[in-house]
Design a protein around this nucleic acid. Structure first.
Length: 402
DNA sequence: AGTCCACAGGAAGGGCAGGCGA
DNA sequence: TCGCCTGCCCTTCCTGTGGACT
């Protein structure tokens, strides 16, 4: 494209009316004024938290529901309203929110505590202090400045998986260490079964009250999408059937509203990029494909060098032998590739862990099988479609000069 | 029934980097 | 500056395991 036509393209873009009016309305962070189809949960949650306004410690609450069922949105909404009421009536309530799935924030006891302490305005170094010190600082700050504290731990199952239930136990027993302040907790989890594995003491004190968020059905998703679409898009750009299609896809995917919004957003972006004036169901189909591809590619390219080389070894073997891969084959291929690229190789123990990590990321699927006299191993299958395999392989070849 | 294979995966600890406080 | 603390990545050592084979 020469410079003249490039300028034309930019000017054309500016002159055209955009499909989007406010793309932000489709983002995860967007807090709508009213949350649809969650009135029961809002009432229930508000009912449990109300005593805080009279300085009576509310019960700890456990909230369950799969991804994209509006848990975080609802909790934040109720928390915000509670905070507003408290402020207007001069009641001293502090609400702390922490997403336990965030890397470098909630993967160790020290980090969670220091993050909570920071939320209270305390300065805590990212490493260096004994954990005991951070506990003391946190408790001291709570006692000095607040009377009611509500700690919201989003994706608390991730916290449990990373650091176990001792930490959660300490948090639920915090009130015994505090003189003036009172703390209650809201645990939010996508995993409906995770409390089964928890220590019964933690389980009973963390889930004094329980609220369940059922998945949205297709009709409810249509309502949600329509409301957001009105805010996000210029009037009349969405063709009939587009919203219904996004809702239907997401309803099949455990009623995930996040998925539905993302699909609509990407469909809009694709239509805009193609300089179309309307979003069609074909754009939704294309969006579905694009989301899938991008997710996998990013998941692979975000890994460390060693893990990427391991993925390359798996891709290579997969193309040669198909599905019958075992840990031993992969390790051998991986060490060969290390020699070829001049990299030092990790031990088989470590590689075994990396394989598990790739499994958790959904890049591969593994299952432990026994071959009798020929030992026990893991069957490894690749979860990437051929089209993306090619793209990833190309990327890895360039990266490792293979 | 006992043996043996090829690992899985737990536990412990080394080494390094980043950071604090005396 | 030094001792101490934490996180992270990794190795070493070890026990456990399911089922084919003898």
């Amino acid at each position: 494209m020469d410079q003249k036509s490039l300028q034309d393209m930019f000017s054309e873009y500016l002159e055209k009316t955009s499909i989007f009016k406010n793309k932000n309305a489709l983002s995860l962070q967007f807090q709508p004024e009213e949350i649809q189809h969650r009135q029961n949960q809002i009432n229930e949650l508000a009912g449990i938290l109300t005593p805080a306004l009279r300085q009576i410690n509310p019960s700890n609450i456990f909230i369950y529901g799969s991804v994209g069922t509006g848990k975080t949105l609802t909790v934040n909404h109720v928390a915000e309203e509670l905070q507003k009421t408290a402020q207007s009536h001069n009641v001293n309530i502090k609400l702390l929110y922490l997403n336990c799935k965030m890397k470098k924030v909630a993967d160790t006891e020290y980090r969670v505590l220091s993050q909570l302490a920071r939320e209270l305005g305390e300065t805590v170094p990212s490493t260096g202090l004994p954990t005991e010190d951070v506990y003391n600082r946190f408790f001291q700050k709570l006692d000095e400045e607040y009377s009611q504290i509500i700690i919201m731990l989003d994706e608390v199952d991730a916290l449990y998986k990373k650091i176990g239930d001792n930490f959660l136990y300490t948090l639920t027993r915090m009130n015994e260490q505090l003189v003036n302040a009172q703390v209650s907790m809201i645990g939010i989890s996508n995993d409906l079964n995770f409390t089964q594995y928890m220590d019964s003491r933690v389980k009973s004190s963390l889930s004094e009250e329980e609220i369940i968020f059922p998945p949205y059905n297709a009709f409810e998703l249509v309502d949600i999408l329509q409301e957001r679409a009105q805010l996000a898009f210029t009037e009349g750009v969405i063709q009939d059937g587009v919203i219904q299609m996004c809702a239907a896809v997401a309803a099949q995917d455990h009623g995930d509203a996040r998925r539905a919004l993302d699909l609509l957003k990407v469909a809009g972006e694709l239509a805009e990029r193609a300089q179309k004036e309307e979003i069609t169901t074909e754009d939704v189909e294309a969006a579905q494909e694009k989301i899938e591809k991008d997710k996998t590619f990013e998941a692979v390219t975000a890994q460390t060098k060693q893990k990427q080389l391991l993925v390359y070894a798996i891709l290579d073997l997969y193309q040669e032998y198909g599905t019958m891969l075992s840990t031993g084959d992969v390790y051998k291929k991986y060490t060969d590739l290390c020699k070829k690229t001049g990299m030092s190789h990790l031990t088989s123990r470590r590689v075994s862990d990396l394989i598990s990590e790739l499994d958790m990321l959904g890049i591969i699927t593994t299952s432990v099988i026994s071959k009798g006299r020929y030992g026990r191993t893991r069957h490894i299958t690749l979860n990437i479609s051929d089209e993306i395999v090619e793209k990833i392989e190309q990327h890895l070849k360039e990266r490792f000069y293979l």
